[in-house]
């Protein structure tokens, strides 16, 4: 490159991209990851906005009208009454404890991910491998927890909920257990539908994140990034993994807390 010193130095207009420099001072891959994440934000927002719209269009639970809280398809349930089970502690009411543990697992796996990115900056191959493994473990634990949560939600409580419905012009009482896309013991069927769609869509993201993390771990272990001279792939997949954690923060608030 030194041989071309006789040519004039290119004049860069700051307002237009002339090539050679990185727009917004990030590499192509990272910029595209940001744009993908923005589009993914819209998808998750659409799901959460739909949740808000449908929830507001239903009767809210009101102690003055409905008396003491019980599951009913007449009003939207209180989330902490729905999510109160913890594995191995059958029959004990522990509202939001399990989902809280899941939240901490995901936040912690986000921390180990950012530690892997930091180790990559220092070209510390062993540390990148170690932290990627912890991140993969966190992701798998979260997925396992969510599988249990789904199984419990579908299976239902021991007592079930008695609903009244009109069959062939007659009022019939029937006990339903758990929830699926058409029936829901915890509240209106739409509540279960949104639970499956929102946590399922997020869980699919966690699953693809874990697959990507395993790929990154594999390529780190075989020294690909060490030979390439930088660990930018860890950063890019890290952006995705943090996004998955970020979405969970919103799902946790708007689905489980509010």
């Amino acid at each position: 490159m030194a041989a071309t010193a006789t040519t004039e130095a290119p004049v860069f207009d700051k307002k237009t991209w002339m090539g050679g420099v990185e727009p917004m001072k990030v590499s192509y891959g990272k910029l595209m990851m940001w744009f993908f994440l923005i589009s993914d934000t819209f998808t998750f927002s659409a799901l959460l906005v739909t949740y808000g719209l449908i929830r507001f269009s239903f009767q809210a639970y009101d102690p003055a009208i409905h008396g003491e809280f019980h599951f009913s398809n007449l009003y939207w349930p209180i989330p902490e009454k729905v999510y109160e089970a913890v594995p191995f502690l059958h029959g004990i009411e522990l509202p939001l404890v399990f989902v809280g543990i899941m939240t901490f697992i995901l936040i912690f796996s986000s921390v180990t991910m950012v530690l892997a990115v930091e180790a990559g900056h220092r070209m510390d191959k062993a540390a990148v491998e170690k932290y990627m493994l912890w991140t993969i473990l966190g992701g798998l634990t979260f997925l396992g927890s969510q599988a249990w949560e789904w199984a419990h939600f579908i299976h239902g409580t021991d007592e079930g909920t008695v609903i009244r419905e009109i069959v062939n012009g007659q009022w019939v009482e029937r006990t339903i257990f758990g929830a699926n896309l058409t029936e829901n013991q915890y509240g209106p069927p739409a509540f279960a539908d949104l639970f499956f769609f929102i946590t399922g869509f997020h869980g699919t993201h966690v699953l693809s994140g874990v697959v990507l993390n395993i790929l990154i771990f594999y390529r780190t272990a075989f020294g690909l990034y060490q030979r390439r001279g930088h660990y930018e792939m860890v950063e890019k997949v890290g952006l995705y993994w943090h996004f998955v954690d970020l979405v969970w923060v919103f799902v946790f608030t708007f689905f489980y807390l509010v």
Partner: peptide, 24 residues
């Protein structure tokens, strides 16, 4: 470039929450 689109999402959220109230 990241924050601006998200502000429009908040707008959509508030608009549709009100819409949900009207449907109720």
């Amino acid at each position: 470039a990241i924050i601006l689109p998200c502000i429009f999402v908040v707008w959509l959220l508030l608009a549709l929450l009100m819409e949900g109230g009207f449907i109720f």
